[in-house]
Design a binder for these strands. Sequence first.
DNA 1: AGTCAATGGTGGTCTGACCACCAAGCAGAT
DNA 2: ATCTGCTTGGTGGTCAGACCACCATTGACT
Lengths: 209, 209
Amino acid sequence: MSGTSEKVYVEILKKIKTIIEEDNLQAGDKLPSERELTDRLHVGRSSVREALRSLELLGLIETRRGEGTFIKPATGHRLVEVLASFILHDKKAKQNLLETKSIILRDCIELAVKRIKDKDVEFLNVLLQQMHEEDDSGQLQKLSYQFKDAVIRLCDNHLLYRLWIELSGYGSSLHGKTFIPDPGDCSQIMEHLKNGDSMKVIQLMSREL
Amino acid sequence: MSGTSEKVYVEILKKIKTIIEEDNLQAGDKLPSERELTDRLHVGRSSVREALRSLELLGLIETRRGEGTFIKPATGHRLVEVLASFILHDKKAKQNLLETKSIILRDCIELAVKRIKDKDVEFLNVLLQQMHEEDDSGQLQKLSYQFKDAVIRLCDNHLLYRLWIELSGYGSSLHGKTFIPDPGDCSQIMEHLKNGDSMKVIQLMSREL
DNA sequence: AGTCAATGGTGGTCTGACCACCAAGCAGAT
DNA sequence: ATCTGCTTGGTGGTCAGACCACCATTGACT
C-alpha cells in the first residue's frame, strides 16, 4: 500500500471519484457493483458499502436493489434534511433557514434577469403556452413547477441553484406546502423577466414566504 | 415496527438522533459504542457503521480509534469539500463557486449593516484598537481574521454564515490564499458599517476576488 | 511512589453467508 | 410466431463472527 493513514472508506471515496472521472460517467449512469468495486479496489465489501452509503446520504448517488448504484442528477435535498434535523434544533435556526432561502432565491433571480437569453425566453414561452392549453390540474401543477424551476435555473450558476433546491426541500418539509405559481403569475413573471425588473419577479416568486 | 420500507441504516440515523436528544448530548460528548448500538437497536454492526460513517462524512460526528465516537461542534467544511470534489469537475463549476461565495458574502454584509448593534460596534472597536497596538505580524493576521469573521457574523444568520465559511474553506483550497484585510481596511470597513454603506463594505471585503 | 506490562473496550476491516429484488433469457403454451 | 411464465444470475441489504490496531485503565512489580 501507499502510506495509507486515511481510513479505507475515505480512500474508496477518492477511488470512486477517479472511476467516475476516468469513465466519464454522467448523471444517471451506473456505477460498478459493490462486488466489482470490492475486487477492483482490493478492499472488503463492507468498506465499499460504508463509502457508498455516505455518498447516498449526501444525495450524490442512488441505489436500487436488484439493479445497481447510479449517479444522481444533483438534486439532493437529503443533505439539508439531514443536516437540518441534526443541527437546526431551535426556532431561530428555522427562521434563519427561511431567511436564507429567500435570500438565495433573490440572488438567483437577480442573476437570471441579467443572464436570460432569447432562447430561454422561447423555452419559457413554450411552457407558458402548454400551461394555458392544459386542463388537467395535476399536469398544470407539474408545468408550473417546471416553469418556476426553469426561471431559477436561468441564474446559470449550478451551485447557487443547488443551494436553493436543498433549502427549498427542507423548507417545504417545515411548513408542508410549496408555493407554485398559477399561469397568470407565470405570465407576469415572464413579462418582468423580459423587462429586467428583478424586483417584481422576486415579489411574484416569493409569495410562499 | 412502523412501516419499514426504509433502509436500516436510515432508521438507525433517526434512532441515533433520538438518542442524542433524549440523553441531551452536546458537542464533544461521546456516543454509545458501535457494539452497544448494535445491541440496543437490534441491528447488525455493519448497518450501524454505515450510518455512523455517513454522519462522519457529513462532519457531524468524529470517531477516534480506541476511544469512541463523539459529537462534533457544528463546523463542517467537510461538507462542501466533499460535495465540491464530486460535483465541481469542470472550470465552469469552479467559477460558479467563486461567484456564489462572492454573492453570499454580499448577502451577509447587507444583513450586517442592517442589524449591527451598538455593542457590536464596541466589540469591533476593541478589535481595531488591539490591531493598532499589535506589533507581531502573526498576531495581527489573527486579529484581522477575527475582525473579518466578526463582521460577517453580524448578519445574525448562522446558516448563511456557515454557508460562507464552507464556501470560503473550499475557495481557499482552490487558489491557496485567503484575503485578510489590513488594519487600515478594517478602520474603513468600520466607518462604512456605521454609516450603513453596504456597497463600500462589500468592496473592501471582497478584495480577494 | 513510580514504572510498565497485561487487559478490556473501542473503532477498522474483512469474509462469508443469506435474503429480497429485478431483469433478461429460456422453455412451454397458445 | 407470439405470448406467458418460470428459472437464473446479478445486484443491493443485512447480519454474524472473526481479526487487527489502538487507547486508557489497571494492577503488579520495582
